[in-house]
């Protein structure tokens, strides 16, 4: 009797419902994958169209970027250096401050402080970047001008600094997660050997959480590279090959904004530059993501 109960077929309705749910889930998963694939494909095809008119050698060796001028030159480097420069300045701010904040929150702060400060940090991460951009342009740049009189109104220094501030909560929050995930038994072991709090934090817990910390830094770096509004507003629109942080520059993202907003005719060469630059940007973040994936796998310690 019991056996026949177990073998009874489910009702048709239930089977249909199960099937429906399954299809729905696959559909939802497929959307995101197909969208990503679609973006990559359109990037690749339009980029190929661009390179059928501009040689890849010129793209990589020319030192000027003037696709919208009458004398057109297509050297990507001015945009790349500007992106790297603003991102590097941002990381110089975000990494030390974010890490210090994370170590403080995880290893030194009381539960009460942690419970208050962490949500505050995450609110900081929710400020729209356009606000940061105008903050850089209207507050930080005039302030810095007191110390650096030659500073241009648009410059990568204040854009980078403010971008760094924007990324602090990013680094702090993710690194704090990594530090807190280190098992308490390691803290006890270190204390048991006569470590001070500082030694426990710096010599045991931070190294043990290094994969998560590096991942947070790489993630922040790829956000800095892709960040658009702050640099478009505060760093300028002048593509030039320089590592001078006081002069206006143009990042890859700023260029994309400029072209997207302007009246660039569809199908023109200047239209295709958009994709070439976008594809370069994509390669940058893609390499960073692969790097962070590799780092996490290589250095992750498995605790049970």
């Amino acid at each position: 009797m019991a056996v026949t109960e177990l073998r009874r077929q489910p009702s048709l309705l239930r089977a249909a419902f199960e099937r429906f749910i399954q299809v729905l889930l696959v559909f939802a998963a497929a959307i995101s994958i197909l969208t990503t694939a679609g973006i990559v494909f359109s990037l690749v095809f339009e980029t190929i169209a661009f390179f059928s008119e501009v040689s890849i050698v010129e793209f990589l060796t020319e030192t000027e970027w003037t696709p919208l001028f009458s004398i057109k030159k297509y050297g990507i480097w001015p945009l790349v250096t500007a992106t790297v420069l603003t991102s590097a300045i941002a990381m110089m701010v975000a990494v030390p401050l974010g890490l210090i904040a994370a170590i403080f929150l995880s290893e030194f702060a009381s539960d009460n402080i942690r419970r208050t400060v962490k949500p505050l940090l995450e609110i900081l991460a929710g400020i729209p970047t356009v606000v940061y951009g105008y903050f850089a342009l209207t507050t930080i740049t005039p302030f810095l001008k007191n110390f650096i009189p030659t500073l241009s109104i648009f410059n990568s220094l204040s854009a980078g600094l403010v971008m760094g501030v924007m990324l602090i909560p990013f680094v702090a929050s993710l690194s704090e997660d990594a530090l807190s995930a280190v098992p308490n038994s390691l803290r006890e072991a270190a204390y048991g050997l006569g470590s001070t709090r500082f030694e426990v934090a710096v010599r045991v817990i931070t190294p043990a959480a290094i994969s998560g910390i590096v991942a947070s830094i790489v993630l922040a770096f790829s956000r800095a590279i892709g960040e658009t509004m702050i640099v478009a507003i505060a760093a300028g629109q002048n593509p030039r090959l320089t590592f001078d942080p006081t002069v206006p520059v143009m990042t890859m993202t700023s260029y994309i904004v400029q072209v997207s907003l302007g009246d660039t005719p569809y199908g023109s060469l200047s239209y295709y530059t958009l994709y070439a630059v976008g594809f370069t940007l994509f390669i940058f973040t893609f390499i960073l993501n692969i790097f962070s994936y590799w780092m996490v796998r290589k250095f992750r310690e498995v605790y049970d």
Partner: peptide, 18 residues
């Protein structure tokens, strides 16, 4: 800290550093 340097401890679960 000085106390623990002279009175060491071994824990229930092995907890070597990574």
């Amino acid at each position: 800290v000085n106390v623990r340097r002279r009175i060491g401890m071994v824990f229930q679960k092995p907890n070597p550093f990574p």
